[in-house]
Design a protein around this nucleic acid. Structure first.
Lengths: 228, 228
DNA sequence: AAAAATAAGTGTTTTTTATACACTTATTAA
DNA sequence: TTAATAAGTGTATAAAAAACACTTATTTTT
């Protein structure tokens, strides 16, 4: 008795796609990159950045290819979120989509390339109407991000290599959508030895200036306890 | 400029499957239901319970159908774990598989039906060699289970409707693979009002007898804080 | 040159949560 | 009757989280 039933394999016309939930941070708000859908069905709505998985292409690779094509960015930190598999989720047929979340530094991605795709950033509190079940996808990715950002040093992907503690705090406040006590926040940050203070200060945001810090990957590998 | 590229859709020969990681609890150990693979490739190894997703079938439904076919069980608590999508993960072709974890009460499932499939329970510490990437699947499901079992009342799916606190504690010790202080454990349990003590005692395991408890779904909905 | 304005930076106390730890009780079998 | 067994119970300590307000460095304004 076989478990994988041959008959299904021949008949199956299910398509497999990936959709990327691309987070950015700007103006102290968490933002999402969406593209304007210029064709039917659902013409005029906004959509996540997605595409079909290629023949003999790894799922992770597919997500990275799609992201690259639309943002010009490579080597981006991406995590699989979950599979969306309601048979009628896409009105054009049976398409199962695996979502990935990516965090990109807006200042480093190629605006021109993105604009070719009618892409636009939206603060997560002000999203337009999205196609299909993309709203659900976004919500599950945000929930996942909020969960993970407390226990893993992933939010640094949304900041430049050198950042200040006020910047980092505002990022956390933006992601978690809550205000955080400055002293408690800083105490926690400072006891993580892999967040190292540089001599240089950022003088652009205040008169006093705020010290720059950087995240030291190698030091983190030694002592992987992260908690914010 | 379309994002979903039509050409891919026509060519795509990727197959979509679900694999179920079925947990049971027996003899104070967490167990997994596996089936013996009687055909090539990988003949003789053991495998998760899986199958292809049907045409116009919801992913969740597919997982439930596969589970039903192999265990005879319906209305089982299942959670999606993750998608496995390396292009070469299955030596028979490009098959992407979405894993689901299910928790079943061994005493309620149909042994005869299962034996038709050469299915067998294995303690998670003593798993045989598994096909393809099923070992990775199992490991990620166990990690997920250990994470979720602390914050959600899901472990009760592995126990009968009436259970004792010693039983519950042993279940947690089995899942987490660590011993837990009895007094601390009971204190936490007893402050969850939706775990209600019955008048009846289980006299089968001790002379003194242990009170039966039950998980009250309705009460839980009111006060959803769970922590063990 | 002094004063005002601005954001960065700093410690302590209180509350909550987690952990460690040992004896009594109910019942049955010897 | 008493010996054996697992169930059941409370307190003290340690660790983590949360609450809370002033000082400092620098620039701009007067």
């Amino acid at each position: 008795m076989t478990v994988y039933n041959k008959e299904y394999r021949e008949l199956q016309q299910i398509k497999l796609a990936v959709d990327c939930i691309i987070f950015g941070f700007n103006d102290n708000k968490l933002e999402l990159l969406l593209i304007h859908r210029g064709f039917e069905p659902e013409k005029g709505k906004w959509s996540l950045i997605g595409g079909f998985v290629g023949e003999n292409e790894d799922l992770d690779k597919a997500a990275n290819r799609v992201l690259y094509k639309l943002s010009g960015l490579e080597d981006i930190y991406m995590e699989q979120v979950k599979a969306f598999g309601k048979a009628d989720r896409d009105s054009s047929g049976h398409v199962v989509s695996i979502t990935y979340s990516a965090m990109i530094l807006k200042s480093e991605y190629n605006e021109d390339q993105v604009s070719n795709y009618n892409a636009k950033w939206f603060p997560i509190e002000e999203l337009p109407e999205l196609v299909f079940d993309h709203r659900d996808m976004v919500e599950s990715a945000i929930r996942r991000l909020r969960r993970r950002v407390r226990n893993f040093p992933i939010a640094f992907n949304l900041l430049p290599a050198k950042f200040t503690l006020p910047q980092l705090q505002m990022l956390y406040e933006g992601i978690l959508n809550e205000s955080i006590d400055k002293r408690n926040f800083r105490r926690k940050v400072l006891q993580m030895k892999y967040l190292v203070r540089l001599e240089e200060k950022d003088m652009s945001e205040s008169r006093k200036g705020a010290y720059f810090y950087r995240f030291d990957e190698a030091l983190y590998k030694v002592e992987k306890n992260f908690n914010l």
